[in-house]
Each structure stands twice: as C-alpha cells, then as structure tokens.
Design a protein around this nucleic acid. Structure first.
Length: 247
RNA sequence: GGUAAUCUUG
C-alpha cells in the first residue's frame, strides 16, 4: 500500500491522471485495499486535468467499493476538482453532503468553495459564503479572503472589489499577505486601471510586503493592456536596479 | 512517513 501511495503521488505530480486510474484498478484487481491518500492523489490529478466528474465518482467508489469512509481531505479534493472546472454548484453540493455526514469542513475546504465561486466571477456569492462560513464557525483564513478578492478581479468589479480590499485592511479580520496585494493589483489590471495598480504596488513596501516579481509582473500586465510603455520601462529599470532583492 | 485551498505571465 505504501508503494501504491508513493506511485500515486508521483503520477499525480507528473500529471498522469489516466495512470492514476489504472493504478487504482490494479490495486483492486490485486485485492489491495486503497486508503484515502491514494484517492486524494488520484483525485487531485483528475482535478488538474479538468476531470471533475471522474474525481467525484472516485469519492463514491472509495466509500462503496473500498469501504473506506471519505474524510475531509477526500471531500476537499473533490471540491477542489469541481472548483478548477468552474463547477461551483457541484462544489457546494459536496460541501453540504460532507456536513450531512458529520464531517466538518476545514479552512482548505472553505477556501476551495470560495475559489470555485471566484472562478465564476460570483463575488456576491463569495462574500455571502465568507459570512456563512463564519456564522457556521468554520475557519476562514487569509487564503479564503484572497480567493474572495479574486472573484472581483474575474468579474472586473472594480469599485466593489476595492471596497472589499479596503475593508480587509481596515477590519483586520485576517492578516493580509503579499498575495492579497497582488490580487488587488490584478483587479485594477483587469479593469484597465494602471494608475490604481501602481498605487497599490507603491503601498506594498510600507505595508510590510515588499513587491515581488509577481507584483511587478501584474502591473506590467496592466501597462500592456493600456499601452503604457513609459511606465513599463520605468518599472523594468526599477526591477533591474533592485536586482536580487526582489523575491 | 506520505495526501487537500488563494496571486501575474509563460
């Protein structure tokens, strides 16, 4: 079983989702009882490949064929697969199902669900879900807020998104991190607001999050969208001067 | 011992 678990993990990292499924069938044929680890790796590979339906069916197979009770990891992997495929409705069906079965979603689960909404640009629902998760006493972390902020970027909802970003800074419900700023910059980029993107970049140094190469690249993307080559050159020069000090 | 979530471009 350890051999199979390592095999599955390797196949998953290589993006070989078909091979993961063969390995699972192979295990069944040899009478080796799989565990949650094997299934989570296979489901992650399937999720990366966009095969959310197969990932979800593995969840049932784990229970019905292997007679293993799916845990929070397995459910989160299934939800993540739905999220990647843009299937937020299915993600929430799975979340409800796990709660019904007495499995408490953790911070990863909550973030996956919000990310599913974000990918669809459903920022109102993402805000609602943040609220519901808090009311339900589920862990709501910085990545969950970052995922919600991302929803505004996908939806190109500039003003509501900047309001949410300001609320995050003011309320201190969760600590911000560099990604929070990067996503806020991305929001401006998506909305063609290069100068707002630049202003957020400039605010990073004094906020304790020195801009990384991702931060700079995102502003450069905004410049590209608006044809602002002067600012591009300026930022590139700045990056060169800072050299190895940019993460 | 090993598995799950959020950032730009490619």
């Amino acid at each position: 079983i350890f051999s199979y678990t390592h095999l599955m993990s390797s196949l998953e990292k290589l993006g070989r989702e078909r091979a993961c499924l063969s390995a699972i069938h192979d295990m069944r044929a040899r009478g080796i009882k799989a565990d949650t680890y094997c299934y989570v790796s296979a489901m992650k590979a399937l999720g990366t490949a966009g095969q959310w339906e197969t990932a979800v069916s593995l969840l049932s197979e784990l229970r019905d064929i292997e007679r293993v009770v799916p845990d929070v990891y397995v459910y989160t992997a299934a939800i993540s697969a739905c999220s990647t495929a843009g299937r937020w409705e299915e993600a929430f069906v799975l979340k409800a199902e796990m709660v019904n079965r007495g499995i408490k979603p953790n911070g990863y689960t909550v973030t996956s669900c919000i990310s599913a909404l974000a990918r669809a640009g459903e920022w109102e629902r993402a805000l609602q879900e943040l609220k519901v998760a808090e009311e339900d006493g589920l862990p709501v972390s910085t990545p969950a807020f970052n995922a919600a902020l991302k929803a505004f970027a996908i939806a190109k909802a500039l003003e509501p998104g900047l309001d949410f970003f300001r609320d995050m800074q003011r309320d201190g419900r969760v600590p911000l991190d560099e990604q929070t700023y990067n996503i806020a910059i991305e929001l401006c980029k998506e909305c063609g607001e290069t100068s707002k993107a630049l202003a957020i970049l400039r605010s990073m140094a004094t906020s304790g999050f020195p801009p990384s190469v991702v931060s700079f690249n995102t502003v450069l993307g905004a410049c590209e969208a608006t044809g602002d080559y002067r600012l591009s050159l300026e930022l590139l020069r700045e990056m060169r001067l800072q050299g190895g000090r940019i993460a």
